[in-house]
């Protein structure tokens, strides 16, 4: 579904991602792991078209590397970004409403908002409250819900557990699990490699802008020390 080919990312003249290749099959959950500054967010940004990059990104048999960010979203790519970036001056409801921007059928979108409120009763309670006043965990739920409002083909999740208490982290991973069973294609970027490896069908390990390993959970774990130093996962 998503094929990244020979992708490099640049900030000015500095190259931070070096000619990487990876593939995400439809319906699968792929994890992109690595230490701070490895280039995970940069990779995601290049899929979205918000940074300078070379190489190609192929989505649903279409080269999207030259088209506008907005158009990529419209093709069915959705993002729950690092740091959540909820619209803190907007209400919870308005955040979700904007999430449905690419939907033509407003009625269905409204239904969907109700649906999310059922899954997260807390969001329903806070419906008219400004998103900036939500707790970190609530904001993360809102971010994911907002990303799903557009009914995407693929969901990009950038560090959804960042800064959350273990209890809440657990809830977030449960949510991702649910999404997975619903058949949504997911690219998951995580620091919490232990959980991510469990969840993902296939993983790529990024270090200093290079893919240094890839495989399913057991293949990654077999790599031993190198992996544990990069991902913090104990064998």
């Amino acid at each position: 579904m998503l094929i990244v080919n020979d992708l490099s990312v640049f900030y000015g003249k500095i190259k931070v991602v070096h000619n990487i290749n990876f593939t995400i099959e439809e319906g699968s959950c792929v994890a992109l792991l690595g230490p701070n500054g490895a280039g995970k967010t940069s990779t995601i940004s290049s899929i979205l078209g918000t940074v300078n990059s070379t190489g190609t990104v192929n989505f649903c048999n279409q080269d999207i590397s030259k088209i506008q960010t907005e158009d990529r979203i419209k093709l069915g790519i959705s993002i729950a970004p690092e740091g959540r970036r909820v619209f803190s001056n907007l209400s919870v409801f308005e955040n979700l409403y904007l999430g449905s921007a690419i939907r033509k059928d407003r009625a269905i979108a409204d239904n969907e908002i109700e649906n999310w409120f059922n899954i997260f009763p807390i969001l329903k309670e806070r419906k008219d409250q400004s998103a900036g006043t939500l707790s970190g965990g609530e904001q993360q739920m809102l971010t994911i819900a907002r990303a799903l409002m557009g009914n995407p083909k693929i969901l990009l999740l950038d560090e959804p557990s960042l800064g959350l208490a273990p209890m809440i982290t657990k809830q977030v991973f449960e949510l991702i699990e649910t999404l997975k069973t619903k058949g949504i294609t997911i690219l998951l970027v995580e620091q919490n490699a232990t959980e991510a490896l469990k969840l993902a069908d296939y993983s790529y390990i990024l270090n200093s802008g290079n893919i240094v390993a890839h495989g399913n959970r057991s293949e990654i774990l077999k790599k031993g020390d190198l992996m544990s130093s990069l991902t913090g996962v104990e064998n």
Partner: peptide
């Protein structure tokens, strides 16, 4: 209103 806070995120909503 959203754009006044985080313009890029609005684009990321499509």
């Amino acid at each position: 209103r959203a754009a006044s806070l985080d313009f890029e995120m609005v684009r990321l909503m499509g």
